[in-house]
Structures are given as structure tokens and as C-alpha cells.
Simulated scan of single mutants.
Amino acid sequence: MKSEQQTLSEIYRRYYHQLTGYLCKKFSFSRMDSEDTAQTAFAKFAALPNANSIDNPGAFIYKIAQNVALDRKRRSTVRQRYIEEQGYINEEADEEYHEIDPERILLASRRLQVLSDTLSRMPEKRRNFLLMNRFDEVTNVEAAKRSGISEAAVRKHIAKALLECKQALDAESYE
């Protein structure tokens, strides 16, 4: 076990700084994002049961890091697209979006109240599945196991809950 840790430590020292520089350049990551990505890659590498038997650990870690970086980019793109589709960003005045003003605070407060009211009116099971999924990050499979119903039923409950929330927000006038 000692030799495995030493080997991993040596690999880390040898490739970490090169890898973070590569990630900054290749994926236009900030230094912090490249460090997080490299750290995740090394953690995944360390978790492999046969890490010490890999012929070229540097290339393997680079490949893991590329996959992690691509996943980060995809998630970021999906998140950004969702934000834009929901109208949260005013493309003409993007800087205003980041300003905190009383009007935005009031709007957010109203939206939060609408969601809270909607959640309180939902059947308990539906509300719990939504909260587990979105806030506790419980997968549909895990929620199904916990509750003793099928994964498909859990998905339907979550979909209905999300639809109710969307309809409530759409029906509310915020002016």
C-alpha cells in the first residue's frame, strides 16, 4: 500500500502543473477551474483498482482530465442555454443582470413565494420526490428504492411537480 501511495504521489508531482497549464490553454479555463478539473482527474485515477499497473499514467490522467473538462463545458453550456431560454438574462443589458436592485429582489421574492405556495399545495409524495431530486440530489433510482415504487413512477411525479411549478410561475403576473 505504501508503494501505491508513493507512486500516486510521484505521478501527481510530475504531471499536476503541466496538466493545469494544458487545461487552461486547451479549454480556456481559469486557473481555479483547471486546478479543480486536474484534482478531479487525479481523484478518479486514484480510485482505479489497477492504477499502479497502467503503462502510461500521464497519458491516462490527461485523458481523464479531458473527459472531465468536456463534461464541465457541456454542463456549463446546458446551464447557460437554460438561463437564456428562461429569460433570466437580458441580452441587451447583460451588466444589469448582475446588479442587485430592489426591483430584482422583489421579483425574486415573488417568484420564490409562488414556488413555495405551489409546493405546499402539491401532494406530499410528489413534493418529496421533487425536493429529494433537486435539493438532496437523490437519483430517481435511489428515490424509487427508498419509496418502493418504480423509477418510471418517480420520474412522472417529478415531471408533474416541475410542470406545476412552471405553470404557476407562468400564470403569475410580476408587474
Rank of each mutant, 00 (worst) to 15 (best):
M1V: 08
S9P: 03
R13D: 02
H17A: 02
L19A: 05
L23E: 09
C24T: 09
C24I: 13
S28K: 14
F29G: 08
T37D: 06
A41V: 05
A47T: 14
A47C: 15
P49Y: 00
P49R: 01
S53M: 00
A59E: 09
A65W: 08
Q66T: 14
N67K: 10
V68F: 00
A69S: 10
R72H: 07
R75Q: 15
R75A: 14
S76H: 15
V78N: 13
V78W: 08
E84P: 07
E84A: 04
E85A: 09
Q86Y: 02
Y88S: 05
Y88T: 07
N90L: 00
N90R: 03
E91G: 15
E91V: 15
E95Y: 03
Y97E: 00
H98F: 10
H98G: 13
I100K: 07
I100T: 14
D101C: 11
I105K: 12
A108N: 04
R110P: 06
R111I: 14
T118G: 04
L119H: 05
S120Q: 12
K125I: 06
F135K: 10
E137W: 03
V138W: 02
T139H: 15
T139D: 13
T139I: 12
V141M: 13
E142N: 11
E142M: 12
S147I: 08
G148I: 03
S150P: 03
A153F: 06
R155F: 10
K156T: 14
K156W: 11
I158R: 04
I158F: 01
K160M: 08
K160V: 10
K160E: 14
L162A: 12
L162P: 00
L163Y: 01
E164W: 09
K166G: 15
